[in-house]
């Protein structure tokens, strides 16, 4: 069943600067896509390709200028439904420092449910569950500014989970983190997808993160360039390289070998797959 549907969405930022007009940054130019319930989607592309603009359409932070976005069957343009949609689709932003409101972890996580007018006892339950889901329960009394980037970002995710959404959109949540923080956040995202069956839309420009998704959508200049299973998408090394996007090194090596005439049936994505493939051809 489709949970989110975008139909031919267009959106342009108004820009007074004449020079910028020719470039039209961050715009969306006729994007249609569907997201199924429980799916894990990676949305890939350069800065300014429109992926963040797209993200804000999923929870009615932006409304399409042309076309429509439906969340669970409801048009995001429907008046009076904005907050119902935001409750269902949570948005996590890039900089964890700028999305935490309160000075104590658990009080910050409670912010969302408090806005929804949930009774106090229920909020407590939700906050505890949300913190446990991202493995930050033991930090519930800490001050956010003393935590690491990865921990802060997981608190931000907990703040969204506490609203019990069906879907979480994460707009480059790992861009400002170190490798350890990235791992922590990715593990939390995967766990939420698998165990809590939350639909995930992960916006990123790290290829190794996109590999984890069920489906990868690549955007370029406000349009969808290609989409499919990670293996299908990353096999198109030539196309991705042409648009100066990364491919995993394992896939790139296989592609080069294939181009020089080595027979390769299955394009590898991970280290293990690549070692296996190389063993096969070297044997």
């Amino acid at each position: 069943m489709e949970f989110i549907t975008a139909e031919n969405v267009t959106f342009y930022y108004e820009n007074d600067d004449e020079q910028q007009n020719s470039i039209i940054k961050n715009a969306i130019d006729g994007v249609s896509l569907e997201v199924k319930k429980g799916e894990f989607i990676a949305l890939l592309g350069h800065n300014g390709c429109g992926k963040s603009t797209m993200a804000k359409h999923f929870n009615a932070m932006l409304l399409p200028q042309g076309g429509s976005v439906y969340v669970d069957g409801i048009d995001t343009k429907t008046e009076g439904k904005t907050f119902d949609i935001r409750k269902q689709v949570g948005l996590v932003l890039q900089n964890p420092d700028n999305q935490l409101v309160a000075s104590i972890v658990e009080e910050d996580v409670a912010f969302g449910p408090e806005n929804l007018g949930i009774p106090p006892k229920k909020i407590r339950e939700r906050v505890d569950n949300a913190l446990k889901a991202v493995d930050m329960y033991e930090y519930r009394k800490h001050a956010p500014y003393k935590l690491s980037g990865g921990q802060k970002q997981r608190i931000a995710i907990a703040g969204i989970i506490a609203m019990e959404p069906d879907c979480i959109v994460l707009d480059e949540p790992t861009a400002m983190l170190d490798p350890k923080g990235r791992d922590e956040v990715l593990k939390a995202i995967q766990k939420l997808n698998k165990e809590n069956n939350i639909t995930i839309i992960l916006i990123t420009h790290y290829m190794d993160e996109a590999v984890l998704a069920d489906r990868v959508i690549v955007m370029d200049k406000g349009k969808i360039l290609t989409q499919g299973k990670p293996r299908e998408v990353f096999s198109q090394v030539h196309l991705l390289k042409k648009h100066r996007l990364d491919v995993p090194q394992a896939t790139e090596l296989a592609y080069k070998l294939k181009c020089s005439g080595v027979k390769i049936d299955k394009m590898p994505l991970t280290d293990e797959e690549c070692v296996e493939m190389l063993e096969g051809i070297l044997k």
Partner: peptide, 28 residues
């Protein structure tokens, strides 16, 4: 780097590629 790791695990399995391969070009 991923490529270094891949080539190192091949060497562990008895192949004799150079130690510490750093780029895809080198491995290729």
């Amino acid at each position: 780097p991923q490529i270094t790791k891949i080539m190192a695990s091949l060497n562990e399995k008895g192949y004799d590629f150079s130690e510490g391969i750093l780029t895809v070009e080198q491995a290729f």
